[in-house]
Design a protein around this nucleic acid. Structure first.
Lengths: 347, 347
DNA sequence: TTGTAAGCGTTATCAA
DNA sequence: TTGATAACGCTTACAA
C-alpha cells in the first residue's frame, strides 16, 4: 500500500475532506482492487471482506471518484442533451422522461441549450464530447457539418428527437410532424371546415415548422381544397403572437372558418383574444392547437389539439441509447411514436 | 514520444476515432506538455508552436479529454443542479439563468430531479459529488442530514434557491417567500378587501408554502384582520385544483371577497372557472396569483401577481458559485433578490 | 478470493 | 520557451 505523501511532487493539495479508495482499503485492511470489486460486484468478494469494506466506506465517508473510474474503464455514465431552449416548457416533459430513465439506470444527465442556433449546438456537442459522454440526445435534426463529423468520429451513439427525419445521424425517436399536421387538417376538413388557415413558427430556421406546413398542404390536396397562400401565416412564438395572427386572418380579406395553430402557445393566445372580444368559438372561427398543454383542456371552450408523445420521446431516447451503450443492441433504430387527435369543443 | 501499442496490457480498445493529446503532439512535433500549454495558455508558447498545434488539432480532430484533465488538475467545470421537478415550468427560468451564465464561463450543467423527496435529493447529490462537480445548486432548502454531511465533507460550494432560509448549508440566493406573501396580502387589504383567503400547496412537505402562510398571517395581524381558518386552504398543484379551491371557498359558509393563490397554476384554474361560470372578477371575488407566468397578463381579466426573480436567481446562483470556484470570493453570501407586485384588473 | 503492476489521458512540477 | 517525469484515483489484466 503506498503512501499519500510522495517524495517530492507537491501538487495542489486535495480538499481536506477528500477520501480516496486507498483510504477505504487501509481501513478495511484490503487492497484497493478488493475495494473496487466489493463496490461494483459484491458477489466476487468474501462475505467478510464485503462487510469490512462497507463499514469502512461508511466510516470514512467515501464517494467513489467517477472521473478516475471513467478514465480508467473508458466508460462513462453521463448522457448529454441539447435542447433549443431550456425555458420552453414543451421540452420539459421530454427532459423529464430522459431523466426518469437515466436515474433508474444510474446514469447522469448533462444539459445545454442551443438557443435555436446550430453553431451553438455544435459548441455544446464539442463540450459534451470533451466530457466523454456515453451518448447524446439532440432535439434538433439540422446540424453543422462539423458537428456531424465530430459525432461520427467519436463513435458516440446519438438519438435525435425533433422530427422524424429521413436522414438521421444515428437514431431517431420522434413523431412525424408531417403526419400530425396532415391528420389535424384532415380532421378539420372532415368536420366541414373549408377555409382552414395554418399558423406556424417561422419555417426558415425550423424543420418542424416546415414539416407541418407540408403536412397541411398534403391534407388540403387530398381533400381537394385550394391552398390559399393568404391562409398561411408564420409568427414568432408567444401568446400575443397568437392573438395577432387571429386578428390578421379574420380581418384580412380572406377570413378562414378554422385556424390550425401549429406551434407553441399560439392557440392559447388566440382563444384568449376571442374571450376578450366575446367572439364565440367555434361559431366565429374554429381553433385547433398542436400540443397537449394542460391548459388547453381547461380553456373556454376547451381546445381541440394533438396529444404528442413528449414524455415518451424522452423515455425511449434514453432507452435506445442505453441499449447501445450496454451492448444490448447495435441497430440504428428509427422510432415513430404515435400521436392522437383530441377533439374538443373549439372545433 | 511513446507508442500507443504497449508491450502487453491489452485493455478495452479505445473507440476507433479517439484522438489523444499525444497524437496532436506527434503531428505538431512537440511534447504533450507543449500541446497542453498551447491549448490552455497560448501566451506561454511561441507563435510558431502555437500555429503548429492549432493546425494539428484541426488536422486530427482532437477534442481534449476533460475527464483526464479534471482528474489531473483536481479541477472540474461541471456544476450539479437538483430541482424538485424538471417538468414544472416554474423552475425552467431558473435553469435557463444558470445555463446562460455557465455557458459564458465554459462550465457544464448536470441536472437531476428529486421528485420533491429529500431522500432522492440525497442520492442525486451523492452522484454529483461522485462526478466531482465544482459546485452544487439546490432548489430545496431542507435536506437529509447525510446529504448535508456529505456536502460539508466534500468542501464543494453550494447555493440554495428555494426560499431565503436563515440556516443555509453555504450560500442562499432567493427571495423571501414570507415577505412576498405578506406584501401581496397587505396589497389586497389596502385595496379594501376584508375577507382574504389564502390557497397554497401542502405545507407539510414544502418550506416555501409554510413561509407564504406565515407571511399571510403576519400581514393580517398587521392590519388587524382576523385570521379565519376557513379562509386557508391547501391544495395539490394543478389547474383543476385551483378551480376546486375557488368553488369550495365561495360555496362554503364563509365566502371570501379576495383569494390569494400562492402556488403553482392554481390562480389560472380559478380564473378559468370564473370565465366558465360567467362570474365577474373581481366583482364576484378578487383573485391574485404568486408567480409571473406569462399567461396571467393575457387572461380575462389580467391577473394581479408577483414578479419573482426566477431567471435572476439562476444567474446569481451560478455567479456566486463561479466566484468561489475561481477564488474571487470566500464569503458565504446570502442574496435577497427583490420581488414586485404587478397590479392588474383581477383585484 | 485476493493482490500486483500497468495504464487510462491529462496536468503539476521541476529541470534544461 | 520547452520537455521529462510523476502524479491524479481508479480499473484492466494477470498472477498468486
Amino acid at each position: 500500500m503506498d503512501d499519500a505523501t510522495g517524495p517530492d511532487g507537491q501538487r495542489r493539495p486535495a480538499a481536506p475532506g477528500v477520501v480516496r479508495m486507498r483510504d477505504v482499503a487501509r481501513t478495511a485492511q484490503v487492497s484497493t482492487m478488493t475495494v473496487s470489486r466489493a463496490l461494483k460486484d459484491p458477489g466476487k468478494v468474501s462475505a467478510d471482506v464485503r462487510r469490512r469494506v462497507e463499514e469502512a466506506v461508511r466510516a470514512v465517508g467515501y464517494v467513489p471518484n467517477k472521473l478516475a473510474g471513467s478514465l480508467s474503464s473508458r466508460r462513462s455514465n453521463v448522457i448529454g442533451l441539447v435542447v433549443p431552449s431550456i425555458e420552453n416548457s414543451l421540452f420539459a416533459s421530454t427532459v423529464q422522461g430522459i431523466s426518469d430513465v437515466l436515474r433508474q439506470h444510474d446514469h447522469q444527465l448533462m444539459i445545454a441549450d442551443s438557443g435555436y442556433s446550430a453553431v451553438a449546438e455544435e459548441a455544446a456537442i464539442r463540450a459534451f464530447l470533451g466530457q466523454r459522454v456515453a451518448g447524446l440526445i439532440l432535439h434538433d435534426t439540422t446540424h453543422t457539418p462539423e458537428a456531424v463529423a465530430m459525432i461520427r468520429q467519436s463513435g458516440v451513439p446519438v438519438a435525435e428527437n425533433g422530427t422524424l427525419t429521413p436522414t438521421p445521424i444515428d437514431m431517431v425517436v420522434s413523431y412525424s410532424n408531417f403526419d400530425a399536421a396532415k391528420a389535424m387538417t384532415l380532421h378539420l376538413a372532415r368536420l366541414g371546415y373549408r377555409r382552414i388557415a395554418l399558423v406556424t413558427l417561422p419555417a426558415s430556421t425550423n424543420a418542424r415548422s416546415r414539416d407541418r406546413q407540408e403536412g397541411y398542404r398534403a391534407a388540403l390536396a387530398e381533400v381537394g381544397l385550394p391552398a390559399d397562400p393568404r391562409l398561411m401565416l408564420e409568427m414568432p412564438p408567444g401568446l400575443a403572437s397568437g392573438a395577432e395572427a387571429l386578428l390578421r386572418l379574420l380581418e384580412g380579406g380572406a377570413a378562414p372558418d378554422a385556424i390550425f395553430f401549429a406551434g407553441d402557445v399560439l392557440a392559447i393566445g388566440a382563444v384568449l383574444e376571442c374571450i376578450r372580444r366575446g367572439w364565440p368559438v367555434p361559431e366565429k372561427v374554429a381553433i385547433a392547437a398542436f400540443d397537449n398543454i394542460d391548459l388547453l383542456a381547461h380553456l373556454v371552450p376547451p381546445v381541440t389539439t394533438l396529444r404528442l408523445p413528449r414524455l415518451e420521446i424522452g423515455r425511449r431516447s434514453a432507452e435506445v441509447l442505453l441499449d447501445r451503450i450496454q451492448g444490448r443492441s447495435t441497430s440504428r433504430v428509427s422510432i415513430d411514436l404515435r400521436f392522437e387527435i383530441i377533439h374538443r369543443a373549439s372545433t
